[in-house]
């Protein structure tokens, strides 16, 4: 995180715990989650609702693992490793639960922009056909109510990350919340008013944490619609925002010498992946080009 010199850090070694994960002894700092102990998002345990900058809600349950002595499966993303815990990250039971989570989501939500899903579907033997053509889905019209971003809740898996980013974990705007209950639960402003009628300040921090493309910048949405969005041709360069004196880290996504998207590095100690409207959307002045 911050480059705090060692001299002012608490130098006492952190307590550790040792557990058995997939047959191997693993020693980690107390408080480490099973997911972190297994390599985080780069490890073998699949995750959907887990993000780098938001306290896990463990809502999707894709990362479940077996913890010996536990009646139900445990979410690896939020269960801390405990001493002498015996964990299995793959088993018939685990795989079954993951398959069903992928089937539940795949049969009700548009996952076309969600990373890794195709590979996981193959890995876990997902069969979406068995739910029939009449299976209920969350499909609903795309919300285009402002010039900066588009909300397509047909792609929403209710990971809660946008709500938490807008709310108490980062932005504290509290403009969107989960409304309704059960299968009707959905992300909403009050009374489903448009974003311009809400208190939204267009920081776009909800967009950055959205793992399924339900929230995308209007530029990306339009380019996708036009068939010109091509991540293979995009180069990402880190720099510093030119507005105000805070010095927020930016990632400029550039395609054909044009900025097509701005994000902030999730591990940036100043932003934690967050920006304001100017930093995220105010890049146009650098590319109002002649001709």
């Amino acid at each position: 995180m911050n480059d705090v010199p060692v001299s002012i850090r608490d130098t006492d070694p952190l307590p550790t715990v040792t557990a058995t994960i997939d047959g191997a002894d693993v020693t980690v700092a107390a408080g480490t989650t099973i997911l972190q102990a297994c390599g985080g998002r780069d490890g073998e345990i699949p995750t959907l609702c887990y993000g780098d900058t938001i306290t896990p809600k463990n809502a999707c349950r894709l990362c479940v693992v077996e913890v010996e002595g536990s009646r139900a499966l445990a979410p690896a993303c939020s269960r801390p490793v405990e001493a002498d815990m015996v964990v299995r990250t793959r088993s018939e039971r685990v795989d079954h639960a993951r398959r069903m989570v992928l089937e539940f989501l795949g049969s009700s939500v548009d996952l076309s922009l969600t990373a890794n899903v195709t590979a996981w579907n193959a890995q876990y033997g997902v069969d979406l056909d068995r739910y029939g053509a009449d299976a209920a889905t969350v499909a609903r019209p795309v919300k285009v109510d402002n010039d900066l971003y588009v909300r397509d809740y047909s792609k929403c898996i209710l990971c809660y990350q946008c709500v938490d980013a807008c709310g108490e974990q980062w932005q504290h705007s509290f403009v969107i919340e989960i409304a309704g209950r059960g299968f009707d639960a959905h992300v909403s402003t009050e009374h489903d008013v448009t974003l311009p009628d809400s208190a939204c300040v267009y920081c776009g921090n909800c967009i950055q944490v959205c793992p399924t493309g339900a929230l995308v910048p209007a530029v990306e949405f339009d380019m996708r619609a036009a068939g010109t969005w091509d991540e293979d041709r995009q180069v990402v360069t880190e720099t510093i925002c030119g507005f105000c004196g805070v010095g927020c880290g930016l990632e400029l996504h550039v395609q054909d010498n044009t900025i097509v998207k701005v994000t902030s590095p999730p591990d940036n100690p100043i932003t934690h992946g967050n920006l304001c409207i100017k930093g995220r959307f105010g890049f146009q002045h650098a590319q109002n080009r002649p001709g």
């Binding site: 311009p196 300040v201 507005f243 100017k278 105010g282 002045h285």
Partner: peptide, 17 residues
Amino acid sequence: LDSYNTGVQSGGYRSPT
């Protein structure tokens, strides 16, 4: 929030606010 100084840099994008 959405504007900056004399607007040279911030005038170019379409802020809903």
